[in-house]
Simulated scan of single mutants.
Amino acid sequence: MNWLCVVAGAMIGAPLRFLTDRAVQARHDTVFPWGTFAVNVLGSLVLGVLTGAAVAGAAASRLQLFLGTGLCGALTTYSTFSYETLRLAEGGARFYAAVNVLASVVAGLGAVFAGVTFAEAVWA
């Protein structure tokens, strides 16, 4: 039964990633992969809130599977981040590649910490 929670979350997360990526990228006329950056930071925020809720005992294991493993697993994408960073570097946009790595790590960690802090404030 647990696998259904993961599948259901992924059925939402994968199209959400695609649609969000396309919508965000269409609004920016740059080689920087804003769409992938946005979904990865959003996923980090959701995982932070979920982690904080789980620590407080406010998130059942099935919700963790649905949101954390399924939805966020399909929403966020390390492989696309890596591929796009490599393409930037190979295409001569090494500055953008470096910014993508640094900004993704800093913003992702910031988002997860913000999510945990928010959850602690709500469920403490």
Rank of each mutant, 00 (worst) to 15 (best):
N2V: 05
W3K: 11
W3Q: 12
L4W: 11
C5D: 14
V6N: 08
V7M: 15
A8W: 08
G9L: 02
G9T: 07
A10C: 07
A10G: 12
R17C: 00
Q25P: 04
A26K: 15
H28P: 13
H28E: 14
F37I: 01
F37K: 06
F37V: 01
F37D: 06
A38W: 11
N40D: 05
V41I: 10
L42E: 07
S44F: 07
V46E: 03
G48L: 00
L50M: 01
T51M: 09
A59L: 05
S61G: 14
L65C: 03
T69N: 11
L71G: 01
A74E: 02
T77E: 04
S79V: 00
S79F: 05
F81S: 00
T85A: 06
R87L: 12
L88R: 10
A89F: 14
R94Q: 14
F95D: 15
F95V: 12
V99Q: 11
N100W: 10
V101F: 15
V101D: 13
A103C: 03
A103M: 03
V106R: 04
A107C: 10
L109H: 10
G110F: 02
V112A: 10
F113A: 12
T117A: 14
F118V: 11
F118R: 04
A119T: 00
A119M: 00
E120H: 14
W123E: 01
W123V: 00
A124M: 05
